[in-house]
């Protein structure tokens, strides 16, 4: 499918200078991701004192508590919400990204900015605006009443539906933007060629456009799904904090129960599971790429 690399593989093997170039990023990751994570890992094996500070004594108690089925259930529910959000974002966002990517050149960046600008108002204010719309005596129900006065008002706010609306709203741009990056690169000639060969619009879409923009979809999925799993504020504000997600539980260990070691253990397991899954996916992805080449 993709053209075979023209550059011989040995020039892709990094020279020490290439490592030097990568050094700032590696250093950044080590200092501000690895070291803090290591601190948390140490904490997760400790006990708490009454301020919530850690006492350095080795214990596995926190991990034993993580194994409680309550947390597993909460974790699975979080994945469910994030997965649903991701799917809706793809379905809703893809056509938008495509439209922007194929727009006239002078329009593209303006449209892209237009997608992002709503998110430059504070999250809290935006969310309260949504509450104004969705509440029982809100704008949406007012509008419905105008159309048909006998209709039963929607009870949307503080329900799982409201949470999903909030999640899709918050993460949609993070799906649109990377897909746009892939669509913009699409070669018009390829699409035309497919048409010339007699493929209908649907066929062109499913066998030419989708495969070519797959990297964008994959990137968008990563940027939406991953942060959405650990999200906490939207469930609190739009869901009425009725059903806890993993993000809320971790947050509470620090800001309510004052139990840092347990919060750290929950976080360590959560991040560890994610890193493992992601690493395996990368490995499988590399294998399938190799077999294509």
């Amino acid at each position: 499918m993709s053209p075979a690399p023209v550059i011989p593989t040995d020039s892709r093997t990094p020279h020490w200078r290439a490592w030097l170039l990568l050094a700032p990023m590696v250093a950044w990751l080590v200092l501000f991701v690895v070291v803090p994570t290591a601190i948390l890992l140490v904490y997760s094996f400790c006990e708490r004192d009454e301020v919530g500070r850690v006492l350095f004594s080795f214990t596995l108690e926190n991990y034993r508590r993580v194994a409680d089925p309550v947390y597993l259930r909460i974790f699975l529910r979080s994945i469910g919400y994030a997965g649903l959000t991701t799917i809706i974002c793809i379905v809703v966002g893809y056509p938008v990204a495509y439209c922007i990517g194929r727009a006239r050149e002078d329009w593209r960046q303006r449209l892209l900015l237009l997608v992002m600008v709503p998110f430059w108002t504070s999250f809290l204010i935006r969310t309260y605006a949504w509450i104004t719309i969705l509440k029982q005596e809100g704008l949406l129900n007012g509008f419905v009443q105008q159309l048909s006065p006998t209709a039963k008002p929607f009870d949307l706010l503080y329900t799982p539906t409201a949470v999903v609306i909030g999640l899709v709203y918050a993460y949609l741009p993070f799906m649109i933007l990377p897909i746009y990056g892939s669509v913009e690169k699409l070669d018009g000639a390829l699409i035309e060629a497919a048409h010339d060969l007699g493929a209908g619009p649907l066929r062109v879409f499913s066998s030419v456009i989708i495969p070519l923009t797959m990297p964008g979809i994959a990137a968008g999925t990563l940027l939406v799904f991953v942060p959405a799993v650990g999200m906490f504020a939207i469930t609190d504000l739009m869901g009425g904090a009725r059903v806890p997600l993993i993000g809320n539980v971790i947050q509470n260990q620090f800001l309510q129960a004052r139990d840092w070691p347990f919060g750290a253990a929950l976080g360590a397991v959560f991040m560890g599971l994610f890193a493992l899954t992601y690493w395996i996916m990368l490995k499988l992805g590399a294998h399938s790429e190799d077999s294509v080449a």
């Binding site: 708490r48 309550v70 259930r73 059903v243 139990d259 347990f262």
Partner: peptide
Amino acid sequence: AADVDRLVTDLKS
């Protein structure tokens, strides 16, 4: 405090 948190989380969940 940890037991209280666990109890409420469990019931809400």
